[in-house]
C-alpha cells in the first residue's frame, strides 16, 4: 500500500469524520456527502499535497472554502429565483433559458466574487446595468476616477481568471 496516493490515505482515514463534521454544519446527510466529495476533489485538483501535520485541521480549512462557495451558489440561486418571480409570466424566460441564464450567472458570480464588494458593484452597474460612470460614482458615493480604477481592476481580474475552455 506504500504506492497509494496520499489523498487516498487522507480519504480512508478521515472521510467519515469530515462527512460528520459537514453534516453537523448543514443538517443534511446527502448535502454533507456531496460537499465532502467536493472537498476531496478540490484537494486532488490542487496538485501536490503539502506536508500535513494536522490532517483534520487541513480538511476543515478546505471544506470551509467549499462551504463558502456552496452558500454563495445558494444565495445566487435564491436571488435569481426572486428576480424571476418578479417578472410577469409573458416576459419570463422559458425553462431552458432559465437554466442557461443560471449557468451563465454562476460563472460570472464565481469570477466576480473574489473582487472587493465596491469593485464588483461598480463593474456590474457599468457592464450589466449599462449605467454611466458619473451615475455609478453618484450612486456609490465615490469619485469618477475611482470608478474608472475599479473598472480596470475588474476587467484585469476577469481576464486573468476567465476559464479558457471554449463553449
Amino acid at each position: 500500500m506504500s504506492a497509494a496516493h496520499p489523498v487516498a490515505a487522507l480519504y480512508a482515514d478521515h472521510h467519515n469524520w469530515l462527512h460528520a463534521w459537514l453534516r453537523r454544519k448543514l443538517g443534511c446527510t446527502h448535502r454533507a456527502a456531496d460537499l465532502a466529495h467536493d472537498t476531496f476533489l478540490r484537494i486532488l485538483k490542487g496538485g501536490e499535497l503539502p506536508e500535513i501535520r494536522e490532517p483534520r485541521a487541513y480538511l476543515t480549512t478546505v471544506a470551509k472554502g467549499v462551504l463558502v462557495n456552496w452558500y454563495q451558489r445558494q444565495a445566487l440561486e435564491q436571488a435569481y429565483l426572486e428576480a424571476l418571480a418578479s417578472l410577469p409570466e409573458a416576459v419570463a424566460p422559458s425553462e431552458e433559458e432559465r437554466y442557461l441564464i443560471l449557468e451563465a450567472l454562476q460563472e460570472l458570480d464565481a469570477l466576480l466574487n473574489a473582487l472587493p464588494p465596491l469593485v464588483k458593484r461598480s463593474f456590474l452597474l457599468a457592464q450589466v446595468g449599462e449605467l454611466r460612470y458619473e451615475d455609478i460614482a453618484a450612486q456609490l458615493g465615490i469619485s469618477l476616477s475611482t470608478v474608472k480604477r475599479y473598472m480596470r481592476q475588474a476587467f484585469r481580474h476577469c481576464l486573468e481568471h476567465m476559464p479558457d475552455d471554449s463553449p
Partner: peptide
C-alpha cells in the same frame, strides 16, 4: 479572445435578472 468571451458571458444574461442576482 478571453476579453471577448467575458463580454459574451455578460451579454448572455438579461440585466433585469442578472443585476438583482449578482448584486445581492
Amino acid at each position: 479572445a478571453r476579453a471577448e468571451m467575458l463580454l459574451g458571458k455578460i451579454a448572455a444574461v438579461p440585466p433585469a435578472l442578472a443585476l438583482p442576482a449578482l448584486d445581492r
